[in-house]
């Protein structure tokens, strides 16, 4: 487990998402990377039903994320950024909470059409792991996310310059500064939760962009 940086790759006008993904994959293979399977990061959103929660009148939102890099874990993130890492059994608890019972509404309900995921090819080169994922929101293509992991290091600030060199060859100038989610902890030991927070941040951006016209396919 090393330091992970996730960046969005812009899709230029007149090009389809698949073309850009193919171009990136070719580029990574040219660098000497070898394929090492597929990956998937998915996110589902649940919201509380206000009539069952009397203390807080406003709706609470919980995002449940999975990462194929940590297949036995389930990450739950609240709106304020609080993160809970648990076993996959947490899913069962969540499904209980979403069941309506005895005429009462359930505590939580799943938001329809909010399931978002990033899925694609995983590559390994040297001590780096590169993942090129295409993001789809309710099975509509939304954009491209590139994840680069440097495994031997655990401090972001130490290896950021190295990662920047690698990332800038792929995503250009958007990798000028470290991901904004990680700004508050540049010198502490990196954890898998930080990866999830980065993905959630990107997923939220993609969801916000839904109102804007989707990129051409």
């Amino acid at each position: 487990m090393g330091v992970v940086c996730v960046f969005a790759c812009p899709v230029p006008e007149g090009k389809s998402g698949q073309q850009v993904v193919d171009g990136l994959q070719k580029q990574v293979e040219m660098m000497g990377a070898t394929k090492s399977g597929n990956f998937l990061v998915d996110c589902e959103t649940y919201q509380s039903n206000p009539q069952n929660v009397t203390q807080t009148p406003q709706q609470c939102v919980v995002n449940i994320l999975h990462n194929s890099e940590h297949p036995a874990s389930c990450f739950s993130v609240t709106e304020s950024g609080q993160i809970l890492v648990s076993d996959l059994l947490f899913e069962d608890l969540m499904s209980k909470l979403t069941m309506a019972k005895a005429g009462r509404e359930s505590f939580y309900s799943q938001r329809k059409g909010f399931k978002i995921e990033s899925r694609g090819q995983r590559y390994e080169v040297g001590d780096f792991i590169i993942k090129i994922g295409s993001v789809s929101l309710a099975s509509n293509f939304r954009g491209i996310l590139i994840e680069v992991e440097y495994c031997p290091c655990v401090i972001l600030n130490e290896c950021w310059n190295m990662m920047k060199e690698l990332l800038q060859s792929m995503v250009g100038n958007s990798a000028e500064t470290p991901p904004p989610v990680l700004k508050h902890k540049p010198d502490t030991v990196y954890t898998p939760s930080d990866t999830i927070l980065q993905y959630l941040d990107h997923f939220n951006n993609f969801r916000k962009a839904v109102s804007a016209p989707p990129p051409s396919r």
Partner: peptide, 12 residues
Amino acid sequence: FSAPCSKCGKYL
């Protein structure tokens, strides 16, 4: 991980 090469100035 944090120091660049003193000869070529690059990291990787």
